[in-house]
């Protein structure tokens, strides 16, 4: 049994379909990465899973319960967290307030969860009173991930978490993602830095024109010549 399964998803933004029968599955304790060319429907698939765009056909199942076209609020309360690629912090709120907002949907004491996040991202603890909008790109990404972790999710969905970061920060971000997985959280992410992402991924999917092209373990995809030629820069 998978934590999350999306089967044969068709859908788009109201006009022509962008997704043409894509399918993915994520287990707990694993990092699953979606790669593909621009416009292949990677981010769209993630949004469709989270209920941000209409799934015309196909089903999304989470812990054996159908959640197709669910509302984002219910996703959060079920334990699915989503980090958009851009505009993923509340800029005028402090770091700590951003995290508190992340925990909004869950009742109960926020402090232990704040401590967990600060443990994972010590830099955020130092800057907890700083406005998120004034922070660097890398720090903002930490705030965004920290915010998502505040609901103690079982599944964390990240849309291009390393976009626009320096090479050093990219490495650091992937390490963090690996340690998030080690907390027992399933991670589904869309990535442009395909090589590095596959290196830490347990499994990967290659999407083309809204449908699955390849799926395999991370190392196997890295070794696949066709995949390498298409997406990994040779």
């Amino acid at each position: 049994m998978s934590l999350l399964r999306a089967n044969d998803i068709y859908g788009g933004y109201g006009g022509a379909d962008i997704l043409n029968g894509a399918s993915i599955a994520v287990d707990k304790d694993e990092i699953v990465v979606i790669i593909g060319a621009n416009g292949a429907g990677k981010s769209t698939l993630m949004k469709a899973v989270f209920g941000l765009l209409h799934v015309r056909s196909g089903e999304v199942v989470y812990r054996d319960a159908p959640i197709t076209n669910g509302r984002p609020e219910t996703m959060v309360t079920r334990g699915i967290a989503y980090v958009p690629q851009e505009h993923n912090v509340f800029p005028s709120l402090t770091v700590q307030e951003n995290l508190e907002m992340g925990g909004y949907a869950l009742k109960g004491d926020l402090r232990p969860r704040l401590e967990t996040v600060y443990g994972l991202f010590p830099r955020l603890a130092e800057r907890r009173r700083q406005e998120a909008g004034l922070m660097s790109g890398g720090e903002r990404q930490m705030v965004a991930m920290g915010r998502a972790l505040m609901i103690e999710p079982s599944l964390l969905m990240l849309d291009e978490p390393t976009a626009g970061l320096s090479p050093r920060l990219i490495d650091e971000t992937f390490q963090r993602i690996a340690s998030i997985r080690d907390l027992g959280i399933g991670v589904l992410m869309v990535e442009q830095n395909a090589k590095q992402a596959l290196a830490i991924a347990d499994r990967g999917y290659v999407l083309a024109t809204g449908a699955n092209r390849f799926e395999d373990t991370g190392p196997n995809l890295l070794a696949n010549r066709e995949v390498a030629e298409m997406f990994l820069g040779g």
Partner: peptide, 23 residues
């Protein structure tokens, strides 16, 4: 207050507030 911060958050970024689960 939680609600007050949520108001600022929604004013900052409505889309993010929705995916964060703010009612």
């Amino acid at each position: 207050t939680r609600l007050g911060k949520a108001m600022r958050a929604m004013s900052d970024n409505m889309d993010l507030a929705l995916v964060t689960g703010i009612p």
